[in-house]
Amino acid sequence: MHNPYKPYPVRVDKILVETEDKNLRTFKFVFLNPEDEQAFAYTPGQFAELSVPGVGEIPIGIASSPTEKGFVLFTVNKVGAVTTFMHNMKEGDIMGIRGPLGNSYPMKDLEGKNLVIIAGGFAVTTLRSTITWMLDPAHRDKYGRITFIYGARTPGMLLYREEWSAWQKRDDIDAIITVDREFPGWDGRVGFVPTVTEQVAPSPDNTAALVCGPPIMIKFTQPVLEKLGFSEDQIIMSLENRMKCGIGICGRCNVGPEYVCKDGPVFTLAQLNRMPKEY
């Protein structure tokens, strides 16, 4: 019988310090058994349980895109026991990943639409996956205009500099990167994500908004989108909750009748408005 609790063994291939406070590191994993990469077939927006034997498991969004072969990426914030342990791991160490878990961004339903992708802080991880996937030559034609708005407190707290710098040079995506206040050496845009969204967001006609960020950003961005005319069906978000099993059984991540781990983490605002705010 297939055991969905059993992680695939992986090797830490590379660890990249992402932010100036060194609290965010991106882990590049390679599967120990090459056939496991096929079994770990994922879509943008899904997550996995990162499993460190002897320490435990944590649910983390998949930052790489299925179009990137040979490895998977996860960006991990140092918060608790497992993440702190991981931050002390070395390249070459062995651990496990279990998944892919959860639903994903509705990439099929989004075909033919314009997209505004709004991210704050380190919640950008699964949106990195989504954008990379859409910009792949095999997929780019299926989507309309793509506007990416990404903000952080300071330039040093922005993740994925290499990626968004490359996106800024392309003409098939508008990548608008902003920081909260003026900063020496930063000649990019300055302003909070909700304000910038109001300035640059496309018309809501045939457009969907993917929003992922800290609660404070969501709180102020949602009214902006509503003011711009986005309906609750056009706003798509991804939730986080404490999780253990990741497969809709152990009972702790549910928000009303929905399990964030299995029925989510991606929900439309229309769905969220019918659910308790227990997240």
Partner: peptide, 24 residues
């Protein structure tokens, strides 16, 4: 039926991943 999953290191170098009843 809610449960928790924990790793227990049972000797110097060996251990078990276990699940325990939990409570909401």
């Amino acid at each position: 039926h809610c449960f928790d999953i924990q790793d227990e290191v049972t000797s110097a170098k060996d251990g078990d991943r276990v699940r325990n009843w939990d409570t909401c």
